[in-house]
Structures are given as C-alpha cells and as structure tokens.
Design a protein around this nucleic acid. Sequence first.
DNA 1: GCAATGACCTGCT
DNA 2: CAGCAGGCCATTG
Length: 114
Amino acid sequence: MTGTFNERVYDVVRRIPRGMVATYGQVAALAGRPRSARFVGFALHANPEPGVIPCHRVVFRDGSLAPGFAFGGPDEQRRLLEGEDVAFVPPRDGSDNAGAEGWLVDLDRCQWRA
DNA sequence: GCAATGACCTGCT
DNA sequence: CAGCAGGCCATTG
C-alpha cells in the first residue's frame, strides 16, 4: 500500500494548510501525475483515513466542489470551508456552477500553492 | 485472477 | 467559439 500513487495523493492533501484549498489537477501534479487527476478523486473517495484527509479542501479547477459525492454533503463541505476562513465568491456569468448553492471557492485568494 | 470503472484535466478538431 | 476524445493508476465486482 505504501509507495503507491494513491498514498502520495493523501500525503499532498494532508499537507494542505487550513484555510486553503487545492485543485485535483494540482494535487495530481504534486503527486507526480498531472494527467491522472481522475485517480485523485478515486483516492479521496476511498478515503481510508477519514478525519485525517481533508477531502473538503480539494475542489475542481473552476473552484466548484463535488456535488453529491462529498463526505457528508455539499452543504457540510461549504460549511467546513467557511469555518476555515476560506473566501467564497458568487459564480461568474458564463460558468456552469456545479457546486453547493452555486458558491465557488475563490481560487485567487485561497488556492494553496506549494 | 480478469475486466471495468472512477470526486478530472488538457489538447485537438 | 464549442464539442469530443484521450490519458493515467488503483480499487472494486
């Protein structure tokens, strides 16, 4: 189990500081597989260590969250991000928002950079 | 043990 | 400008 791409993803997500969010592509890139963002979601879905891996800090490239697949519900995910001082912004015109309540994370201010 | 799918992203037509 | 297809590793049935 150790030394797998999946484990590397958990390590990156776990390194995300509070109040910051990372995108799947970014986590995948930091994990060493910029073209394997799909498996990042798979890894988080497996979530072998809940409470240790802040899956709610991982969002899409657009800043939207994962509707229906959140650990406890999209409403809970947005609530957690707000509780961590994460900046939320209304959806821009022209962008289809698939997030919770149509609120997107302000990647310009809260996107975690290595 | 084999086969198919999976919270995505990027590039090309 | 918009739509379509491909790519990668691991987990589950």
